[in-house]
Amino acid sequence: MSGPRLPGGRSLAVLRGRATPAGDGSGRRRLARQPVGFWLAVLWLGALSFFVLLAPVLGFLADPEAYSRDVQQGVGWSHWFGTDELGRDMFARVVWGGRLSLMIAAISVAAGILIGGSMGLLAGFFGGWADTLLSAVINVLLSLPALILALFIVTVLAQNTRNVTIAVTILAARAVARIVRAQTLRFRQREFVTAARCMGARTSRLIFREVLPNLVPVVVAFAFLALGLVIVGEGSLSFIGKSVPAPAITWGGILALAKGKLAAAPHLTIYPAVVMFCTLLAVNYIGDVLMRRFDVRQSLL
């Protein structure tokens, strides 16, 4: 490793709080020491991504709206999750529902991190009136329960896929903003930032080279929890009938449609529900493991 060294040959990176403590092993070994559940979660997300990304290419999944003569069938070889009352293959619908659900989730988490992260970073780093102003915005956004905020935004902006994405982006952004602000406050006080400042580093350098790299692990870990947050947010919105308009379909929408046929055709509810549950479990678990690794106090959430 290049750069100035401390007595004893340790890199300055130790002071930056970025380097791994001595004896923690290489990155690869640390990864391998994750619990089995972690790898199961990764495996699940991998399999899910496979179907969801390749759905248009895989012939049997290509069209979630394709009718067949097998109406409201149970599980079988030709229809893995059975069919609905119009003979549509439920596996294809779950995959395509996941495609939209996960696309909305991924976009909104990425945008939420960008927006909320900048707000939190600026508020935490500069303090003073910038903090007062940005915290006021964050507090106003946080003053409504998630579902009501999302419902309100979709109502005001009109109900379509883009606006649903905007609504859940705000849910992700407000959560990220709060956590990034708290973390920035924590790091702003640290010696390495003061040291850099004393050496005459410019503000942009302090932000991008000293503080920001330290926020990355927490934000990456939180991104997984935020994925869960927005999948549930969009799902609830679908469930009350205020998410993407038909024929577009998300997991929440599939479950909402199946609600009325619960007693007659439970398979319409159970398989989508299990897939959604496993996905949420996977992202929550990965997020939780990473959060604990990076030692983020739970009260911040």
Binding site: G228, V232, G235, S236, F239, G252, L255, A256, A258, K259, L262, A263, P266, T269, I270, A273, M276, F277, L280, L281, N284, Y285, D288
Partner: peptide
């Protein structure tokens, strides 16, 4: 507890309604 966290109320509610009310 961790599993329950991953169970949105619109899934659990529907399943409970299915089992205890419908069946």
């Amino acid at each position: 507890a961790f599993s329950l966290l991953a169970l949105p109320s619109f899934i659990l509610g529907v399943v409970l309604a299915l089992v205890f009310a419908a069946k």
